[in-house]
Amino acid sequence: MKPVNQKAWLLVAPVLVLVAISAVIPLMTVVNYSVQYVGSTGRFTWVGDEWYRDVLHSEAFWSALWRNLVFSGVILVIQIPLGVVIALCMPRHGWGVPVCLVLMALPLLIPWYVVGMIWQMFGRVDIGLMGVMLKDFGYNYEGDPLDAWFTLVLMDVWHWTSLVALLAYAGLVSIPDAYYRAARIDGASSWSVFRFIQLPRLGRVLTIAVLLRFMDSFMIFTEPFAVIAGGDPVFLSTELKQTVELGKKSAMSIIYFLIILAVCWVFYAVMTRNEQETGRPQTQGGDA
């Protein structure tokens, strides 16, 4: 019989500790709060799934979720095509390349709260350049949730389109020259070049871009908080901030987390399925 050495478990210990500290303990703390009622004296009372039912039956939650989804949808529809168009227009050679790259990277370097503050001032109807210009059309983000929503979309497009453009640009420059040469030999129009060479080869980077932009916009908090400071429109994150009861807050956090996890999983599944399609099925002796 072989001697069994249980000391080997010690080798796994560092990872277990790390994961416990970074993920398991914080998450389980939140789960713990979400099933209890915390009284003013700091006493915990078990309430089961009551907070969850409370959240799922609250109209505020559903409208915030809906608003979040529409927001993400709208900014994706604008940012992805716009980013690709910008990437197509960027130069491939010469001094224009570093200039463009730096200009594109600038919005990404600005802290999120600062971006919010910039647009908060930019949109003000008394002193902001945009606000003053649009005032005559009835624009006022402080009074009208729709205008505020419009301002946030504009801000997000300004802030993040360059990320999509940079990703798409990286994808474009990685296409070997031979493809463009072959297309010229084949007499392809520039639309055909885009449709049959550039777009298919951008597929992977664009999936990444969609995933990143969806996650970020779905979790948006800092900017709306800076611009409208908790007013309308209410997103999931700002709704979460407004909630007072610790238990309800935790239940909402868990639901929010599960939605994001689900979306991530769907993306992962779609991406890996695409890769499997690329790998060809093994067939032998087709052509004799």
């Binding site: 070997p176 031979a178 493809y179 049959f196």
Partner: peptide, 9 residues
């Protein structure tokens, strides 16, 4: 060309 160029899709 030396290396194959096909239209993937």
């Amino acid at each position: 060309f030396q290396f194959p160029v096909v239209y993937d899709t």
